[in-house]
Structure formats: C-alpha cells, structure tokens
C-alpha cells in the first residue's frame, strides 16, 4: 500500500517548489500583493467550484457576495471597532446569510433564471454600495482600512498578509475536499447530474442546493474580507458585473471539479491582468478573447488539458508496449 506522500510525490514537490519561488518573489511588496490576490481569487474560484462545478448551479453574481464580505468586514472594523479577525468572520457569516436568502428562491429556478437572479443580485449589491454614500463611501470607496490582527500578530505587510491568506487557501481546499468526499458532496454531484433522479434517491434537492449556496457564499465573503485587509482600500468598481464573469472564467480556465484548477485559473488570469496593466484599453478585450478561447477549445480547463495529455501519452506508451509484445510473439 502506498502512503499519501508516495502517491502524491510529484504534486508535493511541485507545491514545495512553488512555495519557495513565491516566498523569494514576495520579498518585494508588489509581488507579495499579487501573490495575496491570487490566493483570494483562488478561494472565490474554489467556492464557485462547490456551487457550479459540483452542484451545477451557475452564478454570475458572486462579485455581489464578494462585495458584501468586503464591506461588512470593513464597516464592522472601522465604524464599530470590532476586532479585525472577528470582523472577518462576521463578514463571512453575513455573506453566508445573504447567500442563504438568495438561495431560497434560486434553488427553485431552472438554469437560465438562476443566472438571471444572480446577475440581478450582483447588480443590486453593486448599485447599493455605489449609491449608499453615507455608509459605503459611494463610488470613492473606503480607504485606510487597518491591518488584520491575528491573535496579537499584526499583519502589517503584504508578505505577512499573503502568508495568512495562503494558509486559509489551504484550509479552504481541505474543507472543499472533505465536503466533496462526504455524503453531502455525493448529494451535490447527484443533483448536478440529474436533479430528478437525485430526488428519486431520497436526496432533498432544495436543501442541498441551498447548502451549496451558503457554503459558497461563506467562502466568498471571507475572501472579500481578506481583500479589504490586503488592499487597505475598497471601492465599488472592484465588485461590478465583469468581476463576476471573471470569477467564472478563473474557475473554467483552471478546470472545474479539480483541486489545482481554481489556483491555476486565478493565478493565470491575474498575471494576464498585471502584464497588460499598461494597456488598460485592451485588458477587457483580452479577457473576452480568453473566455471565448477557453469555451471553444479548452472547456475542461488547464487541468483538463494536462489530463488529456497524460491520457494521450499513456495511450502512446501502451501502444508501444503492445507492438513490442506483438514483435516478441512473432
């Protein structure tokens, strides 16, 4: 029997190498910021994976949930003086409640109308944070958000914050893995594959759909709070409808229902954004072309491409082995 380490040796080495590279790069504040952001978007993409990848519920309104997490955390911290870590958790819980409320009607609707509802939800949150100036600061946003304080350890640099974020990314992945490989996860997959058959098996479809929404909202809200702490500044433009589409693109680019997919997706899309930062006008265009290319040519994402390559190589080596066998016999 192979141990966990032996089975995943390649992956563990890859992760270790990446961690070292990231730590070296993160000595520069700017790179630390990017690495932190990749972690935050990876959490969002992971949360979308639970909802879309496993349960089959599309959401083009996750930027709204992300915004709720960011704004609630910030406002609790700055207006009410709630300790920063508590504010982060409360922000995530409020977002979960919001997700729960949306999910009650959303879980009834068929695909198109679900996406409609989520778009409307995202748009509503965006408009509210934009117009409710006395509380949210309107289009100017809120600045000078204090550092995150984790049990007395003040995360007063991007590097420290990024490390904390990546610890949470690891926790999220573990949580996702545990959920997916449980009774709940199997119910999610059954609902995605065929809601009617799932109901026939005695799965309470609505309950599990709502659960998927709530879990997804919790993680996205937490990511929103982390974003506020990392950037120290939030404004409505971060949370518009395009952002929701980008979250979906990150997930699709990386590959749904995979462990590494969300991380790869968020890393690649964020790097593309940073590389083309100076060409602001082309940025949206590049993203758009990206989405279309992924949809048309790589619907299984980057991880899917890797698996396809692996399968093709295996086929090749199998063929070779077969030929040798034939030659030997002859």
């Amino acid at each position: 029997m192979k141990t966990f380490v032996q089975k995943n040796l390649k992956a563990i080495i890859a992760v270790a190498v990446l961690v070292v590279i990231a730590l070296v790069l993160a000595q520069k504040t700017y790179y630390a910021l990017i690495i932190g952001l990749i972690g935050i978007y990876a959490i969002v993409a992971d949360s979308l994976d639970i909802l879309f990848g496993y349960t089959g519920q599309i959401s083009l309104g996750h930027a709204g949930l992300f915004a709720i997490g960011a704004y609630v955390t910030t406002l609790l911290r700055m207006r009410l003086g709630v300790p920063s870590l508590v504010a982060l958790v409360l922000g995530a819980i409020v977002t979960m409640l919001a997700g729960f409320l949306v999910a009650i009607p959303a879980s009834k609707l068929v695909k198109h109308f679900l996406s409609l509802l989520m778009i409307a939800f995202g748009q509503m949150v965006y408009l509210i944070v934009n117009t409710w100036t006395p509380v949210t600061g309107g289009s100017l946003g809120i600045g000078e958000i204090p550092y995150l304080n984790v049990f007395g350890l003040v995360l007063n640099s991007n590097l420290k914050c990024a490390i904390f974020i990546w610890i949470l990314v690891a926790v999220c992945m573990l949580v996702k893995y545990r959920i997916i490989n449980s009774r709940t996860g199997r119910a999610f997959i059954a609902i995605r594959e065929n809601p009617v058959a799932a109901r026939g098996l005695g799965i309470d479809v609505r309950r599990y759909k709502i659960m998927a929404f709530a879990i997804s909202a919790f993680l996205t809200g937490m990511a929103g709070g982390l974003y506020a702490y990392l950037r120290g500044f939030i404004s409505p433009e971060t949370f518009n409808g395009t952002q929701s589409t980008l979250f979906m693109t990150m997930l699709l680019f990386g590959g749904i229902t995979t462990v590494a997919g969300p991380v790869i997706g968020s890393a690649v899309l964020l790097l593309v954004k940073e590389v083309f930062q100076s060409l602001a006008l082309y940025q949206g265009l590049i993203y758009a072309v990206f989405i279309l290319i992924i949809l048309f040519f790589f619907p299984n994402g980057a991880v899917g491409v890797y698996y396809n390559m692996q399968a093709a190589m295996k086929k090749k080596s199998n063929k070779k082995a077969e030929e040798q066998e034939v030659a030997k016999n002859a």
Binding site: I58, S115, T249, Y287, A288, I291, L292, L295, P299
Partner: peptide, 23 residues
Amino acid sequence: ASFSYIILCTAGLSMLFQNGVQL
C-alpha cells in the same frame, strides 16, 4: 456545451463588443 457555457459565451461576447467598440 451546457446552458451555463452558452450563457458565459454570450457574457464573453458582451465584453468583446464593449471593449472592441472602444478600440
């Protein structure tokens, strides 16, 4: 492709048009 992918495709088209006309 499933419905979700078609919806995303039209969302991508929307971004393409909005940024394309600016160019």
